[in-house]
Amino acid sequence: MSYNNDSLHTQSSFIIDEHHINTTLLPLSQAIKYVKGSGKRTIYEFSDPDCPFCEELEQLLLNINDLTIYLFLFPVTEIHPNAEFRANQIWNAKDRYAAWENYMLYRTAPDTSGDGENTPIEQNIALGRQLEITGTPTFFLENGFRVEGVLPAEDIERLLYQAE
């Protein structure tokens, strides 16, 4: 696997401090966008389709409204060897977010005829490394605050409120 970082920003331009990044520099074209309700609050989520903790986060996000989610498919192949294949399938699905949600919530394989070519998965892996993401799920609030792992829904709501 090779990584082309030419189009990515340098690590120092992304990272503000150990707990924050500059979210305005994220390449949103490499993410799956989903808007719930008004979408007035935003998270930038890095998740692995075969990660049980990412599955738990997806369950929690079902109950959080007025949210825009930018989902960066970020397979951690060292732990989940088939995750990159699955991430490519999800990216090539007609409705990417529905394919993600159906796989994460019901383990329904994405309906796709795509072969995984021309997906941003390798760029997302490189981006995650630049952002020093070491585990999934990791997400960032609109103000760039980093959240690692799974939190109770009420804590996520509180963080979203504070980031507004």
Rank of each mutant, 00 (worst) to 15 (best):
S2K: 14
S2R: 12
Y3I: 09
Y3V: 10
Q11Y: 03
S12C: 04
I15R: 03
I16A: 08
I16N: 04
H19A: 13
H19V: 07
H19N: 14
A31C: 11
I32E: 06
Y34G: 01
Y34W: 10
V35F: 09
S38M: 09
K40H: 15
I43T: 08
I43C: 13
Y44V: 09
Y44K: 08
E45T: 12
E45I: 12
D48G: 11
D48R: 11
P49L: 13
P52H: 03
F53P: 00
L57T: 03
L57M: 07
L60I: 11
L61S: 10
L62T: 11
I64K: 10
I64L: 13
N65S: 15
D66M: 10
L71P: 00
F72D: 06
F74D: 04
T77D: 10
T77H: 00
E78Y: 01
E78L: 11
H80D: 10
P81A: 04
N82C: 00
Q89A: 06
I90N: 00
W91K: 02
R96Q: 15
R96G: 13
A98S: 13
A99V: 05
A99S: 12
N102L: 05
Y106M: 12
P110Y: 06
D111C: 04
T112I: 05
G114P: 07
N118C: 08
I121N: 02
N124H: 07
I125L: 13
G128V: 04
G128Y: 05
G128P: 02
Q130I: 04
L131R: 02
T138N: 05
L141D: 01
E142D: 15
G144E: 01
R146M: 06
R146A: 02
V147H: 06
G149S: 07
V150Q: 03
L151R: 04
L151S: 02
A153Q: 14
E154M: 05
L160S: 03
A163M: 07
E164M: 08
